[in-house]
Simulated scan of single mutants.
Amino acid sequence: MALTKKQIERILAVSRYYYQDDLSQQEIARKMDLSRPTVSKSLQLARDNHIVTINIHDPFEDTGVMREQLRTKYQLKDVVIAEQANYDEQGILEQLGAVTADYLDEIVTDGVTIGINWGRTMEAVANHLHASHNRNVRLVQLKGSVTNSSEDNFSADITQKFNRAFHTQASLLPLPIVFSDARIKQLAMTDQFIKQVVTQGDAADIALYTVGTTRPTAMLFQSGYLDDQQIHQLQTDAVGDVLSHYITATGALAAPDLDQRTVSIPLERLSKKRYAILVAGGQAKLQPIHAALVGHHANVLIVDQAVAKALLRL
């Protein structure tokens, strides 16, 4: 049916109140001095005349395609995309933690060794772990866990929750993340106990970790091991870190001298793992995730929907 100018103006006003301002039909009727049936009819006319069109985005419909595209783009073994309800950082962490715990249920088998990291993302994973029925699972820390900062890195809590879930006792790496001198680090690494833990980490079947950013609030920048000049240089040369190894936009080491003082499994050994699982999400981590993937520092990616789409656009 042909609509008059006055009808179109009323339909537009009703539609904006309903779809943009989220007012109820009753509220619109009171606001515009219309009857409730008139408001309802206006909304129907808006759809019938294509003034308003409704598109339903089904995340389940797109996820399979995105997973395959990401697998191909970054030459990955597997991709898991967490359902995303909003862009809240804590909400994203919760979703990532839940799907990662489910993924571990699928891949952990009797006798495997899992290498773990610390930080907020790993804490979210630890919070969602399920009691495992597998036997003789071993856990090992992949990098140093001692910091000079009062900020909690969640290392103790993560380790405790992983121990409980997998009925084991993790091998700890009770060393600073970064030594002040590479020679002191090398001396510490000759300790028999430390050598055993490092060997376990190198041989782990599964490595579970995230990426860090170069934002001022980054946990590694708050750890007390880097001075202002070093932090500024990293913010200039690097996009983030993988297990405390700072990397450039192409995934190369950004600070080789610093890396010589860093206690962490070498990046080249991650790509050799059966499952090198990078768990990360949120727009702030987009560039570090991309850099880690183009540098082939992971073969499994667990990520949120928004970042998955952004990665495909890069």
Rank of each mutant, 00 (worst) to 15 (best):
M189W: 08
D202A: 14
D191R: 06
A203R: 13
Q200G: 10
Q192L: 13
L208D: 06
Q192R: 14
Q192N: 08
P216T: 01
L208T: 08
D205P: 00
T217F: 00
D202P: 00
Q200I: 07
G212F: 12
G201K: 00
Q192V: 11
T199F: 04
R215E: 13
K195T: 13
D205T: 02
V198I: 14
A204S: 12
V198C: 06
M219V: 10
K195F: 10
L208K: 06
A203H: 11
M219R: 11
G201I: 02
T217Q: 10
Y209K: 05
P216M: 01
T199C: 06
R215T: 13
I194S: 09
Y209M: 08
I206E: 04
I206G: 06
Q196W: 09
A218C: 04
T213H: 03
A204Y: 04
M219Y: 03
G212V: 10
Q192K: 14
M189Y: 09
T210M: 09
R215P: 00
M189N: 02
T217G: 08
T190R: 05
V198Q: 07
R215N: 12
P216K: 01
A204M: 03
V197M: 11
V198K: 03
V197W: 08
T190V: 02
I206V: 15
I206A: 04
T213C: 03
G201P: 02
G212K: 12
A207D: 04
I206T: 07
V198D: 01
